[in-house]
Design a protein around this nucleic acid. Structure first.
Lengths: 178, 178
DNA sequence: CTTAGTGCAAAGCGTTTGCATGCGA
DNA sequence: TCGCATGCAAACGCTTTGCACTAAG
């Protein structure tokens, strides 16, 4: 039932504690980046995050964004993803103490990401069945495939290809041969 | 029960078919790269793969390695991983028609990867519970944590730190201060 | 004979680093 | 005041690209 405000508060607290524990400083830049990352649950690239902060009137350097994101990841407040391999890293907030696992549907055609929360795929369940020789911290699940949008498009294109290659096989209509 | 030889044969066949279907050429470089990738089930980086081929007396350019790996991924014969985010991409063979899912244990301390085959985490089981709006192709599971080797090391370091900071608090033994 | 594939070198691009300055504790 | 954090620009490293040459079909 946590509201976004609750989540942000919890995150700020966790960051403050982490920084203190590590003897690091609680700078306004770090707070601002945390706030912006937690303002939504989208995946953000470093430069997107910077652009957002910029349009908020908050100007900071890319290196600061990168270093802070690294801090957030170490503090367990953010997670880094490399979805395609070609595309740049994307960062995602981690809601403190949230028990549910969630995984990512990655469309290999358009790169769009959707998220699925699935309690049956919780960290606990996945990590439980491990050997004692590995101490799991968290897990990530990626399902690669085709999103419905691309499926539709691909079907449309296929149809058109058949229409034009089949010549007059089906005297239907070339419809829009554009 | 497939032997490595069987697997390689199947992979070669699948590649040949894929290339024919796409109107692409069956060059010796592509075969060599496929063979080398399937010679073991390790994760390989592009330049490692090239080095291996090099030591086999097979010299080819890095760009060829990259472009061929891309082809193999598209043909469903290889998979690309970006484990840490910082480290370069690693490639892994995909055994044709192998039903079992396997996931990766990634040590966040040393970067070492181990693989776990787990039939209860098969693609089928994971993808079954999706909406109809996404057509899954394959999935990847990463469990991040600490491997036993690093756990041991970290415990050792922690102990040493306590020993030296705690002064003579517990007059036990520094045991092996090595 | 045609044209996709290869090799080489250079470009590209996300990310990191070095260093001078600024600011939190 | 002390030393970590920031900003800038340059460096870095993996990957891609452009182009001339080679070879598969």
């Amino acid at each position: 039932m946590a509201t976004d405000a609750d989540i942000l508060t919890a995150a700020r607290t966790q960051l403050t504690q982490y920084l203190r524990r590590k003897g690091m400083r609680r700078t306004p830049e770090r707070i601002a980046i945390l706030d912006r990352l937690f303002a939504g649950d989208r995946h953000l690239q470093a430069d997107e995050l910077r652009a957002l902060l910029d349009s908020d009137g908050y100007h900071l350097s890319l290196s600061t964004v990168y270093s802070t994101l690294k801090v957030l990841v170490e503090a367990g407040l953010a997670r880094m993803h490399r979805f395609g391999g070609e595309q740049p890293a994307q960062y995602e907030r981690v809601v403190p103490d949230s028990p549910a696992g969630h995984y990512h549907l990655v469309c290999t055609a358009c790169g769009r990401i959707s998220e699925v929360t699935d309690s049956s795929l919780s960290l606990r369940q996945i990590t439980r069945r491990h050997y004692s020789s590995f101490e799991p911290a968290y897990c990530m699940v990626y399902v690669y495939g085709t999103c419905y949008r691309c499926l539709k498009r691909m079907r449309r294109e296929q149809r058109r290809r058949l229409d034009s290659s089949g010549k007059t096989r089906t005297p239907h209509s070339p419809s829009k041969p554009k």
